[in-house]
Each structure stands twice: as C-alpha cells, then as structure tokens.
Design a protein around this nucleic acid. Structure first.
Length: 561
RNA sequence: CGGGAAGUAGCUUAGUUUGGUAAAGCGCUACGUUCGGGACGUAGAGAUCGCAAGUUCAAAUCUUGUCUUCCCGACCA
C-alpha cells in the first residue's frame, strides 16, 4: 500500500476522552475513532490489525476442526425468553421493535441460536461430536463502557460451541479448544495467564479465563509463586488459617465507647486482629443476612452468593439494618440477633474472639462459635497476597488482567432448556453435552496495545501489525531514492511481505514519527546513501538498527519475520 | 446506579472567580525559505463557546434544567 494514496491520518496531541494507553494510541494512530461511549469505527490500519487477529483465530479454530458459521445480530426476543435469560440480561440488552411491534434485540450472545442450529443436524449419537463457531459483533448496553476498546457496547467476538454425547468426549472437545486458544494468543504475542473463573450468567460446570496481564486490568488474577495454580479472585479458594484451639472462656460484655471499626477494636482493647470477627450485613434476594469473617478479611460477593444460592446480593442499607437491630454498622455481631448467620471457615477455627454486641459502644470478648447459631458455613472471603496457595505450600501473588478469552463446560444446561437431544446406541433420548468458548477480538487488539507500546506509540508484533514493513523515502522528489523505494516495494510484495510505502511529500521527521506511532515492526529508510545502494533497517522494538546493502535487505527482512 | 471532573475552531487548551460579543499552539490553504527526527516566515480560512430556558441594557462567563464524555465505585460471558 502506498501512503500517498491512502485514507490515513494521525493525531499529534493526546486524546482528551481516551485516558487508557491503548485507547489513546489507537485513536491517535488513526486506527479507530470513537462515535459514542463504547462505540467505535475502524479505519483502514485498525481494520487490518483486527482482521489479522480474526484470521489467526480462524486458522486455529479450523485447525481444531471447528466449522465457521454466521448468526444474525438481529434476534427475536422470544428466543431469550424461552431459555429464561431475557430477564438475566435485563437492561444490558439492546431492544427494538419491528413494524408489527414484534420485539427484537441486538444479540448480546448466541448460545440459543447455536443450539437451534445444532438441532437441525443432531438426530442421533452418530451426528456427534462437532464444533461450530462464528466471528460476529455482540451488543451489550454496558453500564460503564471504558478503556477504549477494552469494554465497548458493540464488540467483535469469536464464539464457538462444542456438542458431544457425554462429559468424557466433551472433555476432549474442551481441551482442543484450550489448545487452539493457547496457539492463538501465543501467535498474537500476548502475555496471558489461564485462570479459573466464575461461570456467571453462562452457567455450567467449569469456566477458565484467558487473561492478558496489564495494569489497567479489570480482574484480579491470583497466582502461585511455585505451582501452576491460577484463579480469578472471584473463585480463588482460601485455605483457612490453622489456629490452635484454646480453652473456651466466658463471654463478657465490655464497654467500647466510640469504637466502630476493626482497627478501633484492636487499638482500644489491645487485642490481636486475628482475635476479631467482622460482621457484615447483606440483603440477599431481599432477605437480611449476617456474614462473619475474620477481622482483617475482605468478603467475596461471588462466593457468598453461591453459598446462599441467591442472584442478587448487596450490602444492606441503613434502613434495612434498623429493621433487625438498633445499632450502627460498626457495632454488629452474631449474638442475640434475628437474622441468618453465615460464617466463614476461618471463623469456625477461632476461639475467644471479639465481636460487636449489637449495641453502640459495646463489644463482646471471649466469644466462641457455640455462643450463636450458624445458618451456613463456607469459604466466603477473598484470598490475599502472601496467603498460602490452596494447592501447594507456595505463596500467592496478584496480577491484574483483562479477560480476552474464556472457555466454559456448559454441560447440559442449554440442551435441556431448549430440548437439544440425541438418540444413543440403546435408542434412549439424551441431552447433548455442550461447551462454549469466546474470544474478544478487538479486546485482544487493545490488550496488545496496552502491553506493547512505548513513548513513541504502538509496537505491534509482526503477526498482527497492519504492515510488516514500512519503506520510508526521505526525499520523494529525489528520483534515485524514489526508484529504489518503488523497486524494493515491488520486490517485497512479490515475496509476500506486507509492505507500506511512505511516499508522502512530508518531512522525514513526520514520516518517522508516524511509522513509530502506528507501530510497524520494521522500517527501511531510503535516503541519501541509496545512491550507493545502502539502506537502513530498523526494528520498532529497538533490536535492530543497521545499514545494509539493498541486495541483502530482502533476505534480512525474511530472516526477521 | 452512586461519587468526582469536563464540554470554547479538526485536535489540545486559555478566557468563567470579577458579565461588555472570543484567544493561543498544533493541524489546514497560498506564497517564500527550508528539507534525515513532528521546520520557519508572511498572508488567510475556520467557533451561533454542548443544547434549552431564565436574569441583565449586555451572558462563553451568573441561575435552572437537559444532553454528552471521561475517571473512581457498583454492575458486568
């Protein structure tokens, strides 16, 4: 492609509305432009990068035996009502009516349609297994789009679905996808981790996430420094601290004027924080419950909702609290209170601890588990850095991540809801075992931009750069330089190398800056020394910076790519 | 949905406290000088100051409402 004849622009200043590194650079480089919050258009350079990513995924999916299809984006809303997900998507779904007032939505996801497609084929066990996928835009009216292409309301996603007769073969299909994902992300050059995750709205047996490691990640990744354990903090199990059991002492009410937080308790009563219990009040599907965790622990909402089997969990309001007890949030405890009590595993191990007395200005000391009634016990706290790994004796550390892909073992949840069955060898009707697998295409693009950029701009890996090589002509009015550049351009194209020729009548500095901003991995500079057949080769990542004879340059480039 | 910040030329911003009809840099056009790291000079084009009401002789500036965008949180395959 010749730049003088291209729809191409760059922006010199930082973009006011794009604070994230990737969002700012992608807009500045003219790859994308924001049209509304979480809605972007892709310009030629940006589209090339997006297509490169799509093609890598497509190749790996095809290699894994999956077949590409394309579902509609416009979907009748009844389809989601049938699977009982209309309400669970709720306001996230973009809804619209046709001329007959029939309600449609812009597809937020496509499980239902894939099940319907699968029904066309699946009659007996002989029709299984298979895997179908698409690369298509999804629409979700996110509460808060952010970070440029990382969280948008319209986004391109590769989603794949595997269909098997049973769990065992389903496992094989699942592993094939995990391999395809690893290959894809490796080829894109992303620094990623695979972690266990919550199954969320999708439901099912197991979910694993592929998380790109970046500072602006939305998820906390829990990693072990000595084994391969990796988990999203949402579901990272906590090994309850071992405590030596003490002899039970007599519970006592003590006056603690003005003491409201655990820090206050520790200071005022001069007690070890490991001897304190924090009581949190939640509204769980409308019912007020108390959760007990060790004083220095943070409660994990995902775990608590799961333990309780509720879908809507939020901290109780002051009015709600007043209904069960006449005390402030900082003075609560499990003694003599009319609400279900959920206790963390760690608290179960504790003895003679301190907790609120449900009376402002008072605490109980020497409280023990048998002093109150527990409704449920379980692991309901967040793991912390430095905690011991749940699988080995290693230490836990955190990373921040952006979810770029995930894999779900769905099981038979959707096939049962939507009657996707097959006849087995014994002529018995059985539900199909499903898996589903997603990759956020533009999100990968943003994650790579986030991971690989410097003060001058983007630094794309050669596998997804819009062009592999850029030829920068210093003086386009110099016939020799222009001829050399044109010739080289044709030769590189013949070799199948994607080359951009910057033949704009601009000053050298402008062209250098632009090539760096858009992140072309290799730059060939054609300048004065072109007279003597000498060119310059520079890699964007700084590894290569050399003068080279024109005759050698093609071989040199090929060895780099 | 809660909290914070912001909307003035294509881009980045000044001006708003203390009302008097809009300014700069970049970009753009023309000419000249330049020409290997976002050149310089001269001359231009380009803004009903997000929108709507209100106060006032007079509103970018004050008041109210509204829309939009970003950030923190809640939420989120």
């Amino acid at each position: 492609m010749k730049l003088s004849n291209c729809f191409f622009y760059t922006i010199r200043d930082d973009i006011k509305d794009e604070d994230s590194k990737s969002g700012n650079l992608l807009v500045r480089s003219g790859m994308v432009k924001k049209e509304a919050s979480g809605v972007y258009m892709f310009m030629p350079m940006g589209l090339r990068v997006k297509r490169k990513i799509e093609n890598i995924i497509r190749e790996e999916m095809d290699k894994a035996g999956a077949n590409e299809v394309l579902m509609p984006a416009l979907i009748p809303s009844e389809i989601f009502q049938k699977s009982n997900r209309y309400d669970s998507f709720g306001p996230d779904m973009f809804k619209l009516n046709d001329r007959n007032e029939r309600e449609f939505c812009l597809g937020p996801t496509h499980e239902e349609l894939f099940v319907m497609a699968a029904k066309e084929k699946i009659k007996s066990y002989r029709d299984l297994p298979f895997n179908i996928y698409q690369i298509q835009d999804k629409f979700r009216d996110e509460a808060r789009p952010r970070f440029g292409l990382i969280r948008t309301r319209e986004f391109t996603m590769k989603d794949a679905y595997s269909f098997d007769t049973n769990k065992e073969t389903g496992e094989i299909s699942y592993q094939k996808m995990v391999e395809a994902y690893k290959n894809s992300f490796d080829r894109m050059g992303i620094d990623y981790r695979i972690v266990r995750a919550d199954t969320g709205v999708m439901g099912g047996d197991l979910s694993e996430e592929f998380q790109a490691v970046t500072d602006i990640g939305e998820d906390v990744l829990v990693m072990c420094d000595s084994c391969s354990f990796g988990s999203n903090i949402e579901v990272a199990p906590v090994k309850a601290m071992e405590v030596a059991k003490e002899e039970k002492k007599k519970m006592e009410l003590v006056e603690t004027p003005g003491v409201k937080s655990i820090e206050d308790v520790v200071k005022f009563l001069k007690v070890d924080i490991n001897k304190t219990v924090k009581t949190l009040v939640y509204s769980a599907d409308g019912e007020i419950i108390l959760a007990l965790v060790k004083g220095d622990r943070e409660l994990n909402d995902t775990k608590l909702s799961k333990l309780l089997g509720v879908s809507n969990l939020e901290l109780a309001s002051e009015e709600e609290l007043k209904k069960i007890v006449d005390a402030g949030f900082g003075s609560l405890g499990p003694i003599e209170i009319d609400a279900k009590i959920i206790m963390d595993n760690e608290v179960a191990n504790m003895s003679n601890f301190v907790c609120g007395a449900n009376k402002d200005g008072y605490h109980y000391i020497n409280v023990n588990v048998d002093d109150f009634k527990v409704y449920k016990q379980g692991d309901i706290v967040n793991i912390r850095e430095g905690d011991s790994c749940p699988h080995c004796s290693g230490k836990i550390y955190f990373k921040k991540g952006i979810e770029i892909g995930n894999t779900f073992k769905l099981g038979t949840k959707y096939s049962e809801a939507l009657d996707l069955n097959y006849l087995d060898e014994k002529n018995q009707l059985k539900p199909v075992y499903m898996g589903c697998y997603g990759i956020g295409v533009a999100r990968c693009m943003a994650a790579i931009a986030e991971q690989m950029s410097d003060e001058y701009g983007l630094v794309w890996p050669a596998s997804i750069a819009p062009f592999q090589v850029c030829i920068t002509v210093i003086n386009v009015k110099d016939e020799i330089q222009m001829n050399v550049a044109d010739e080289l351009y044709d030769e590189l194209k013949e070799e199948g190398i994607e080359v951009l020729l910057d033949d704009r009548d601009e000053r050298a500095g402008v062209k250098f800056k632009d090539a760096e901003l858009i992140g072309i991995p290799y730059r060939i500079t054609v300048g004065k020394k072109a007279n003597d057949g000498i060119l310059e080769l520079k890699s964007r990542n700084g590894d290569i910076n050399m003068e080279i004879l024109k005759d050698k340059i093609i071989d040199e480039i090929k060895s780099c790519l």
